[in-house]
Amino acid sequence: MLVAGIKSRPVYGGLNVDANARRHLFALEGEGALALMEAAAKAGNNFLKTADVLYVATGSRAAEHDKALAALGPDTIWQAPSVPVLLNRLNVMLGQTHMGTRLYLAGTEGFIGQAMQVALNHGIDYGSIRCEHRGSMARRVQCVHCKGITENVTTSPYICTHCGLSLLVRDHYSRRIGAFQGVNIDAEEPGTAPHPEELFP
C-alpha cells in the first residue's frame, strides 16, 4: 500500500567514477562494497591510488566483501564496527577534505540517507554526491506524529516503535532527516488499519 505520485523519492545514479577528481572518498555499507568493485572493473583501478574507503560490514557475506575491498588496493581502507562509528569517521574526514575530492555513498537507503546528512552538514552539494543503492529495500522511517525514527522498516503499515500508532509508510522522503515519512493510517477510526504487507524486503 503506497501513495502514488510522490516525487521526493530519491533516485540514485550509481557510483560513476569522476576521472577529474583529485581524491575519491567512498563510504560503503554491506553490499555497497559490490558497487565499488563494479566501478573499479568498469573504470580501471588507477583512481584507487587516490581513494579512501570507509566500510561497515553488514549481511551474511560481509567477510568476503572485506577481503575483496582490500584486494582492490585503495590508498586507505578502514572498517568500522557499526554505522554510527563509520558516520563519525566520515564526519571527521569531511572536515579535513580539500577541494577536488569526490564523495561516493553505497549501501541501503537508510545508510545513504544518514551519510548524506553528514555530507550536507559540511556544505557539500546534494547533486555532487554519487550514490548507489545496494542491499535491503528496508526503510528508515520517521513518524510524523511523535518524530521518532525507526530503522529497517519492511512493512506498511507498521506500528511506530515510539508512540504505537499504525503508520502508512509513504514514498515522501525528507533529505533533511534522511528518512521516509510515516502517517497514522487509522486516525479517524482507530483499530481499522489493514494488515501489514511486506513491501520493502
Rank of each mutant, 00 (worst) to 15 (best):
A35I: 10
G182N: 09
Y12A: 08
G13M: 05
S136Y: 02
D52Q: 11
G127E: 13
H162Y: 12
L54E: 00
P84S: 03
G182H: 07
V56P: 01
E31G: 13
A70L: 09
P201N: 07
R176D: 15
E29Q: 15
L87T: 09
D18G: 03
V85Q: 14
T155Q: 13
G127R: 14
A68P: 01
D18S: 12
E151N: 13
E109F: 01
G73I: 08
H24W: 06
D186H: 06
P194N: 10
Y55R: 03
R139N: 04
R175F: 11
P10S: 05
A40C: 07
F111Y: 09
Q117Y: 00
V153R: 01
D171C: 03
V85C: 01
P10C: 06
N16C: 02
H195S: 12
T161S: 14
E198L: 13
G178S: 10
R22T: 12
T155H: 05
K147H: 14
L120E: 12
G113L: 07
C131S: 14
R61E: 13
G110M: 01
G44M: 06
L103V: 15
L25V: 13
N46K: 13
P190C: 07
E29S: 14
A21R: 08
S60L: 10
L90N: 02
V85D: 15
T58K: 13
D18I: 05
P10L: 07
G100C: 12
S128C: 05
L72P: 08
R102E: 13
A187S: 14
A115M: 06
V92N: 04
L90C: 03
V83W: 00
A138V: 05
P10V: 06
G14D: 03
F180D: 00
T161N: 12
G191V: 02
P201H: 08
A119L: 07
E197R: 07
A119E: 09
F47K: 03
A70P: 00
T192H: 10
N46P: 00
I6H: 08
V92K: 11
R23D: 12
Q117P: 01
F26D: 00
A40S: 15
G127M: 08
H122F: 12
A39P: 09
K67V: 10
P84H: 04
H172G: 06
G5T: 11
Q181A: 13
L167Q: 11
A68S: 13
Q142R: 15
G164M: 09
G100A: 12
V141A: 10
G95H: 05
D66G: 01
K42M: 04
C160E: 07
D52K: 11
Y173R: 03
S128I: 06
A21G: 10
Y173L: 07
G191F: 01
L199R: 14
S136Q: 06
G178V: 07
L105H: 04
P84A: 01
A71C: 04
L34T: 12
A27P: 06
R140A: 05
E197Y: 03
C131L: 11
P196T: 12
L90I: 04
E132I: 01
L120F: 04
H195N: 10
V118F: 04
G59D: 07
I129Q: 06
R89S: 02
Y158Q: 08
A33I: 09
L165E: 12
V153E: 03
D52C: 05
A115D: 05
Q117F: 00
